[in-house]
Design a protein around this nucleic acid. Sequence first.
DNA 1: CATTTAAGAGCCGCTGCCTGC
DNA 2: GGCAGGCAGCGGCTCTTAAAT
Lengths: 337, 337
Amino acid sequence: MKRVGIRDVARRAGVSMSSVSNALNRPERVSDDIVVRVREAVDELGYVPLQAAQQLRVGRSGLLGMTVINITNPFFSDLVTGAEDAAGSGGLRVLVGNSDDDEVKEREYFELFGRVQVEGALVSPFGEPGERLARRLARSIPVVLVDRVDDDGVLDSVSFDDVAGGRMAAQHLIDLGRTRLAFLGGEEGVRQVRERLAGARQAVAATPGARIDATFAPRTGPGWGIQLGEMIAAMPADERPDGIVTTNDHLACGVVHGLLRGGVRVPDEVAIVGYDDIDFAAVAAVPLTSVRQPAREMGRAAAERLLQLVSGAAEPAGVAIRFEPELSVRASTVGYP
Amino acid sequence: MKRVGIRDVARRAGVSMSSVSNALNRPERVSDDIVVRVREAVDELGYVPLQAAQQLRVGRSGLLGMTVINITNPFFSDLVTGAEDAAGSGGLRVLVGNSDDDEVKEREYFELFGRVQVEGALVSPFGEPGERLARRLARSIPVVLVDRVDDDGVLDSVSFDDVAGGRMAAQHLIDLGRTRLAFLGGEEGVRQVRERLAGARQAVAATPGARIDATFAPRTGPGWGIQLGEMIAAMPADERPDGIVTTNDHLACGVVHGLLRGGVRVPDEVAIVGYDDIDFAAVAAVPLTSVRQPAREMGRAAAERLLQLVSGAAEPAGVAIRFEPELSVRASTVGYP
DNA sequence: CATTTAAGAGCCGCTGCCTGC
DNA sequence: GGCAGGCAGCGGCTCTTAAAT
């Protein structure tokens, strides 16, 4: 079965190819009669213009690129959803690449972005190499960093104050009288992880007698969380932390389960704070207190900024849109009322 | 900044355009010397071939299309992940469309698939119109239905025995002595929902004295689950069901929470069975017994079959690959050991 | 003269300028 | 002057032709 092209439509409607193109893209330039006939022919033939040809001719793909660290983490899927919403209202679609904690994959996606000529990119790099790549990418197309600020103040960004978030989480535990803290994070190479830890350390440092030990899991997810939780539950009670700060709920939901399963009472013996405040946090084994990141709004804000850059309505200016943390307090730290 | 094209590479390497193309795509057709020089020029210039131009000439996009009902449900993101894995090893990428329980969106994605010339499509339609569209799409490109079998036996499919799954869930509750069952589902228009209900009804019908009432939520997600759970908890104890069958864990995780919050003991007063066995099921407020669907494997199997069709290694033959349900039994039905 | 290797031209489908009625 | 149509070209790939060994 051959593809129906603009030629076929033209023949069927009894007009020229250019008139078909005009009728479809700029109907005001062409008589109503032709518009009608072309519409009919299009419907009858089921003509759909070929994106590749349009793009080649016009030089625009109508696509934004976006990379995220781990799409199975609901935080990131919400981030993407927000970006898609905003891009959609600007008439663009989003090509999502899941870098999956792997810088090779990340680079491959950047290359793909070049191949398909995305008009701009939303990048949430996870390590140093990613940052360099992002900066290089930014030489050819507009780039907005997501969930991360650019230290050099060159790239625009939509981010979150992770140091404050980490501090807030630890401070909350300290305020509840916990002093032997543990920090459970995803890969240490991920900047967000390091910043949250740095924040937590600040709170601990300001509190005489408090301390914090960090452990990093190779990946996040409920399964990894369970392991970490059981590991902590297995510690002798006097060495065991009495408060846990985690880098995300994706992990923390599992940790709570692991603790309970190991016979540890939450929050009585160990209180725990999650991060991101994903939907599942509220329904965890013990509902999770969590540092709220408004994922959807962040995704939306980033895409909106990027749309401005792409359309030329704004110039890249190292604008850093920053969201401030809030704490959703639930039973995992304060218990049930 | 102008794009660097194949011309620029040719000039830089001191060879013709065709030699560049050959060196890149069929190195054996060209002398080693040229391959090396072209490689160098490509690296120095940072040349990346333009997908649109290749596609226009060659007629292949290297893309598979895939539609899913609700990407925020971890079951579907796992399905997608599996498909991406398999497609990747076949050298293809997956363009994912989240139809979001909306048939207009679904149609838009199908049109997009035409515009970008996807070479095949994985479709998980959710209603009658979707099925028709899928069949139409299948006239122009290979299509494999996912999570759904084709009644007419025309389209290939990778699916799951949802009637058996629903029956298994209800039977499990009945075996535990529960007779006043409730069925909580997503939209009734979704076929999977209806089949699971039909299966549950079969089990109930075979059991004198048992009954089941169905309630449908407009969407799934922990939030909706909480509402349903609280609603049930608010019922007078003698009207309240003693067993609940749900259509997915995405919803069920919330239901458990809602029940507990409403002061209902799980599973003592109300036992509940989820569906999908997503990662979060094991760490729910009360770990969820769930009908396990191997999402990743299903996605992988579907993509592998589609790759065969796309490459011409196989003909569409209404092949129905069917996965059988297994029950992951956890505390939400049998309590803690 | 046969055979390998490189250069050249045209085309894929569509748009947008420009001409002509 | 408003409106329809002809034509070139976007950037690669591939077939054909030409040259060199």
